[in-house]
Design a binder for these strands. Sequence first.
DNA 1: GGATGCGGGGACAGCGCTGTCATTCAGTCC
DNA 2: GGACTGAATGACAGCGCTGTCCCCGCATCC
Lengths: 361, 361
Amino acid sequence: MSKATIYDVARVANVSIKTVSRVLNGEPKASPETRARVMEAVRSLNYTPSLSARALSGSRSFLIALVSSGGVSDNAMLYVTELQMGAIQACRAGGYHLLTEYIDGGATDFGALVETLVSTLRVDGVILIPPLCDDPKLLALLAERGATCVRVSPTLDGTADQNWGWGIDIDNYQAAFQMTRHLMDQGHRDIGFIQGHPKHAAAAQREAGYRDALFDGGPIPERLIQPGLFTFNSALPAARALLEQKRRPTAIFAANDSMAMAVLSVAYKMGIPVPGALSVAGIDDLPAASVVCPPLTTVRQPIMEMGAAAARFIINRTAGQVGNYLKQVFDHSLVVRESTSPPAEPAAHAAFSLAATPDFR
Amino acid sequence: MSKATIYDVARVANVSIKTVSRVLNGEPKASPETRARVMEAVRSLNYTPSLSARALSGSRSFLIALVSSGGVSDNAMLYVTELQMGAIQACRAGGYHLLTEYIDGGATDFGALVETLVSTLRVDGVILIPPLCDDPKLLALLAERGATCVRVSPTLDGTADQNWGWGIDIDNYQAAFQMTRHLMDQGHRDIGFIQGHPKHAAAAQREAGYRDALFDGGPIPERLIQPGLFTFNSALPAARALLEQKRRPTAIFAANDSMAMAVLSVAYKMGIPVPGALSVAGIDDLPAASVVCPPLTTVRQPIMEMGAAAARFIINRTAGQVGNYLKQVFDHSLVVRESTSPPAEPAAHAAFSLAATPDFR
DNA sequence: GGATGCGGGGACAGCGCTGTCATTCAGTCC
DNA sequence: GGACTGAATGACAGCGCTGTCCCCGCATCC
């Protein structure tokens, strides 16, 4: 009970340790009877193989690292948490384990990180999340050491994706496009937008979706578009800038939920009723999104699924199955809650609205 | 560059591998010059020891597991995330690594979990968070296998703390007591309370703090106390029950922030202005607490610190230093934001309020 | 002078697995 | 019939470290 080894199992099953190893690793050469005998011994001894020994002698470590750039205890961290949960689930299913590493916001000592990951831990793969997943230095180092990596919501769009790892994402363009259309369907035309972090590709894609949905390539009133960094605080000034205009937008679409919450907060302080006088929408469907007042209309990404897929990819790849895609795109879905509604004075801004709703394309 | 081993270092430094090992592990027997020579070789080769090899041959694995019972993607998960960040920081400082394991909400197959932790991973310690840290079965299994464990915010109060591991907490009683007094200082007497999860000791302690502060052992109008489970959803009915009373409380103190947010949400839907007609307070200072409208008055716990302390304890303990305390209590602090203010009609409820503010004790 | 102690350092045997290669025993083929 | 094939299994050598034991040389002590 204390600590059974493979030797104990071999003795009990009356086979060699190599055969035990084969059975445990699902290798082909083993007769059904032998297999059964070994499994029985394993069960009776309550045997669990040692990860260290397996890692030391074999080529797999059964370890996956999730690297994020922590530091800011922002609400958006829940994104990481959920991704992590998905990854852990997939790990457990595959006999793997998840290591979590943070790298300090400003720190760029990627060398040490990579060395630790590759040399010390010998992880079988690394899951990178924004903005780390778009750092060329980190990616280069990782690639140089031959690390398998999966990038969640990466910047590069397949084309230039020079074996910097596999990507996982949703269609940010479509998500933003659809949300914008949702607002337009409700009658909004004066829709403000708060941009995401300029270094993060999802930000650009979301903005493009918004622009195309609203203006369809036409002229763009820049006053409607304000800069943000995906964080709550970064969106406060943007929201103010939008809401203090004489002709205030009837809706604000923030590039993510954290920033949408900032809009809610500013509106609250300015005494602007939501959704009465202002509709607000975001993207991400953070757990907090359904908890704020009013609950936020947003776009849900299957974050847990994505985390699980990332881990599974690494597991399969290490096991020899090579996926030949560069990127997997997950479905998103509109979650309409109470923060959006038709604008108060439907035709008041008619002069500004477009003649007709452009077609989807 | 590719993968230096201890042999390479030994060769370059012109010493035996054992000496390299000694230097790297800070063992005493090594002259300063030798030490310097070895370190130089390590640097020049960019050497990093293999964790697996160390774990396999030595008695430490340099791994710490953080076990939480995931599943619900509640806002309160940020608590876990922050704890994790603290733990990771401490790990990095000590050359350790943090593994995160979730156990499904309902699952009680602790046997397999413990086996994995102890046998497969051979972690040097386990950090347990509520409600897992209070599960007797899990604790017994862990103790049986001799695992070092640190329980965050555990139930047992030192006394009965039968070597079930070290504990980390804040003084929940005082935190609740002080928050209640804060509300009373503002003039509130009719203060509702939403209880935490009955299986979690912090819940009981917080309730005791509230009761003692408000009633000082006197009669307790039970209508003021409603059950909750620490989750947002669980507090919705409680908040409704409190706010639909003819004589509505002028303040509601929820046993944690998630539930306080539920109060905010219900008040919003009922059209009760906060803090105008109702003050709301919580405990935890979740990141979301400062983001909701209005920002929540709450009690901050140094969660990251606590996570770091937990990891450090395990690291030190494994290194031989035995801490002889059973529990470490961290300081908390009141964070007064905008969700609390003096009640609208100061003396309206005088008939119900206590004659005088009882003394602190 | 021999016993003793101690700082400094090496030899060596594993830790518990997996990879590689060898071996055995049926069947198969011409 | 003898060489050949392939499935099932075992022998054995590490993987890269740490723990244990041992050795050397020098100072100390009666």
